[in-house]
Design a protein around this nucleic acid. Structure first.
Lengths: 202, 202, 202, 202
DNA sequence: CATGAATGAGATTTCATTCAT
DNA sequence: TATGAATGAAATCTCATTCAT
């Protein structure tokens, strides 16, 4: 996917530093000079390791998506049913995301920038696979009676999509990751209405 | 070409044009030259109407937030209970957002940029009021037994926050706004689990 | 061919200045800062008038080739025979080239650079038309008996090609343009051998 | 991979590789990294063999000019008359040039660059010797009646100069070197006019 | 001899903003 | 109000060269 001549330690370290800055301020808003400063070198020296700022972004994003997709595939493969698959996906995503905070910020802040470039076509491809996975799971859940029959799977995914990355978006001092994930699953499966009050709402 | 009647109409028109571009590409990614081009004038001429690019952003964002907050206050004031208030908020937001697509993109893409400037302090203030309104409503719902007693209101709001702007984020050809809002409310109140399957999940 | 919003006087003047530098040092070897310095402005200010250094090159080269090709077409159209057409072409080229010294240097020094870019595809197209014109004229001359029957038109053009731009390449203090052109035509038509010595050479 | 026997062989090999690149893209347009890549080493490592990029150019150019000048001197020494000397020069040049394609491209593309540096003063010196040789031969040919009496030797050389390097400039698949050289000599001695049409032209 | 890392000077380009006319 | 021209700061990138290991 990327050039990665030889992921030397130095190189890996630089990607790490750049990622931290991207996570904090976004990709476009971070300058190569800031990255270089963080590494204690001159901005031009970065180009000994990468041939462009975009290469660094590429490296971060592609590693992220590979990781995420691996989690999705494994979840679908190993779960007994759609509900369990979704739970697995959310839990594994949460772990994955923790290792890729930079990628998340980049996708949120700079989606327009990346998605417009052929080099980053894989972003769209990956997003489509993610979407399709969700839709398939939701549909299968409807068929097997575990999810509401009146659920519009496509619409539900559109609504959910952005919430799914939440747990990791930034480290919370108020809740543990575990708590956040549990809260999310609970909300997703049951909504906010009390059980004794249940009746078809809306 | 676009003969303006009054000075303020011309100005409003320019804000409109700028907003369209901001909605499409984000605030930072839009250049003043592009705005001027859209208006058929030179970039320097914009400065007869606004003293900076940020002023245009300011105008758009503050109008948006005033509108949104008015909707929130009115909903809280007029609804008989927290559940109805939430429904009102979601429905009125959906209408408000339709009129302010640019503001939404700006907040999503360029939040870091704006929130760092004193001039845009009101963004944080408004967000806090919105957050507090939700938390209050969720807490009141718990107390009156209409929402699950084990709901963590703060956490729930954090998780929900980003989903709430969804309905308007871009015009869908697949669903009407009505459908989207209904889907969202249904998801929010009841989750995805089928009724006959209900049991405390997770 | 180029963007040329409105060839304002200022713009034309800047192209002129840039052309002088290109003629002296070549396109790549001339920096935008040097161009800006020559104009008494900052380098960034050039981008108010052109969207890239290449645009300036484009403007110069395309104007040149249009001019040259016009000369070729007119010569072929109006000359009674191939020999006269060639003489017309050489004479008109000489005048044209005087007005486009920059273009010539650019083509000689930086051909590799330009010819590799899609934007400058028209260079190849134009060169092909020039080549075809020469070959056609030489062939017709052979058929009508005015040129040597054993002449290989393609090979002759290849050999001649570079000599054709000579007259203008730089202002000579030793010879007038007229003298240079006459010398060239004489060489081209008759070679260097004395008449009383004529016999098939080589 | 390319195991070098002696240090000087390795060095020669590197010059060869560099030359190939220079021939293809010009001297300035070739980066030391590209040279190093071609040799399978890192750019910094080149500096164990040469103290600068210019040294490599120097090596190539000086070898070329020594070779060419040797050919000129030998031709003048051994030919019975000016016409034969010129034929010898052209034929020997053609062979010499074949061995030095890189030098040719460098002189054509980057003449400005080299000729401006004291280190490369020998370029001008050599060019002057070449020019003087031609002028002498042409003048002697006029005196002995073998060349046209009205020939301006200096002007003729200026016009011819660039054509002389032609045969080698790039390997042709259409003509053999022999054919090209014959064509060139024929053109040079006799021009393109048919014999039965001969009359003082222009 | 080669590597891996860095320098430092300078290149092109971007863009919000200013201001005399 | 608008134009046309310019500023100035900063951004990304290039590349020959150096040098400790």
């Amino acid at each position: 996917m990327t050039q990665s001549r030889s992921p030397s330690e130095r190189r890996t370290h630089l990607v790490q530093l750049a990622g931290d800055l991207f996570a904090e301020k976004g990709f476009r808003a971070t300058t190569v000079r800031e990255i270089a400063d963080a590494a204690g070198i001159l901005s031009g020296s970065l180009y000994h390791h990468f041939d462009s700022k975009e290469s660094i972004g590429d490296e971060i994003l592609s590693a992220f998506l590979e990781d995420v997709l691996a989690g999705y595939r494994e979840a679908v493969r190993s779960a007994p049913g759609p509900r369990e698959a979704i739970e697995l996906i959310v839990r594994s995503s949460s772990a994955t995301l923790g290792r890729h905070r930079a990628a998340l910020t980049m996708l949120q802040n700079d989606w327009n920038y990346f998605s417009g470039q052929p080099r980053f076509d894989y972003l769209r491809t990956a997003m489509k696979e993610i979407e399709q996975t969700w839709i398939d799971l939701l549909e299968r859940g409807k068929e097997t009676g575990v999810f509401r029959a009146d659920l519009d799977a496509r619409l539900a995914y559109r609504l959910l999509r952005d919430i799914l990355w939440m747990p990791a978006s930034r480290p919370s001092s108020t809740w543990t990751t575990e708590e956040i994930v549990d809260g999310l699953l609970r909300l997703l499966f049951d909504g906010i209405t009390a059980f004794n009050n249940r009746q078809p709402s809306v």
